[in-house]
Computed example of a mutant assay.
Amino acid sequence: MDIELIRNIFISKKEKVGALQIKMIMENDYSSIMNHKKIRRLMAKYNLLAKIRRANRKLKQAVCHEFHPSAILHSDQGFHFTHLLFQRKVKELGITKSMSRKGNLVN
């Protein structure tokens, strides 16, 4: 029963929602309370993968593998830049990373 509701929400949102968004929709629209960790486990078990941008793909698109030896990647503390896969890839490529402090927006 739980997975049916999760699957219905997931499909109705065009497969672009994750566990936390499904949790909020369940609480607000269906008056059903479920732990986000349980939702995440059920989504993984039934192969419901959200179509989100992955940090690794974004880095591949943005980079051409030819860097100045002292290249620095400066970013904010957004999800893509703090994601473990993104940070590993930056380290593999030998790029120095620089990150703004929280609440210190450049733009």
Score class of each variant (00 low, 15 high):
residue 1 M to H: 08
residue 2 D to H: 12
residue 2 D to G: 10
residue 3 I to R: 14
residue 4 E to N: 15
residue 5 L to D: 04
residue 5 L to M: 11
residue 5 L to Q: 04
residue 7 R to F: 04
residue 7 R to S: 13
residue 7 R to C: 12
residue 7 R to N: 10
residue 9 I to K: 05
residue 10 F to R: 06
residue 12 S to H: 05
residue 12 S to R: 07
residue 13 K to R: 15
residue 13 K to L: 08
residue 13 K to Y: 13
residue 15 E to K: 14
residue 15 E to S: 13
residue 16 K to C: 14
residue 17 V to G: 07
residue 17 V to R: 12
residue 20 L to K: 15
residue 21 Q to T: 14
residue 21 Q to I: 12
residue 22 I to E: 04
residue 22 I to D: 02
residue 26 M to Y: 00
residue 26 M to D: 06
residue 26 M to C: 13
residue 27 E to R: 15
residue 27 E to C: 10
residue 28 N to F: 05
residue 29 D to L: 14
residue 29 D to E: 15
residue 30 Y to A: 14
residue 30 Y to V: 14
residue 31 S to A: 12
residue 32 S to Y: 05
residue 32 S to N: 10
residue 33 I to A: 03
residue 33 I to L: 06
residue 34 M to P: 03
residue 35 N to T: 04
residue 38 K to H: 06
residue 39 I to Y: 04
residue 39 I to D: 00
residue 39 I to E: 02
residue 40 R to L: 07
residue 40 R to G: 01
residue 41 R to I: 07
residue 41 R to P: 00
residue 41 R to A: 05
residue 42 L to V: 02
residue 43 M to S: 01
residue 44 A to R: 09
residue 46 Y to A: 00
residue 50 A to S: 14
residue 50 A to K: 14
residue 51 K to G: 01
residue 51 K to D: 00
residue 53 R to M: 08
residue 53 R to S: 02
residue 54 R to K: 11
residue 54 R to T: 08
residue 55 A to E: 03
residue 55 A to Y: 07
residue 59 L to D: 01
residue 60 K to E: 12
residue 65 H to F: 09
residue 68 H to R: 09
residue 71 A to G: 01
residue 73 L to T: 01
residue 76 D to E: 04
residue 77 Q to Y: 13
residue 77 Q to W: 10
residue 79 F to C: 04
residue 79 F to K: 11
residue 81 F to P: 03
residue 83 H to N: 13
residue 84 L to K: 10
residue 85 L to H: 11
residue 85 L to Q: 07
residue 86 F to S: 00
residue 87 Q to D: 01
residue 87 Q to N: 09
residue 88 R to V: 02
residue 88 R to S: 04
residue 90 V to K: 12
residue 94 G to V: 07
residue 95 I to V: 10
residue 95 I to Y: 07
residue 97 K to N: 12
residue 97 K to L: 12
residue 98 S to Q: 09
residue 98 S to K: 13
residue 100 S to T: 11
residue 100 S to L: 11
residue 101 R to S: 13
residue 103 G to Y: 15
residue 104 N to I: 07
residue 104 N to P: 00
residue 105 L to K: 14
residue 105 L to S: 10
residue 106 V to N: 11
residue 106 V to R: 08
residue 107 N to L: 09
residue 107 N to A: 08
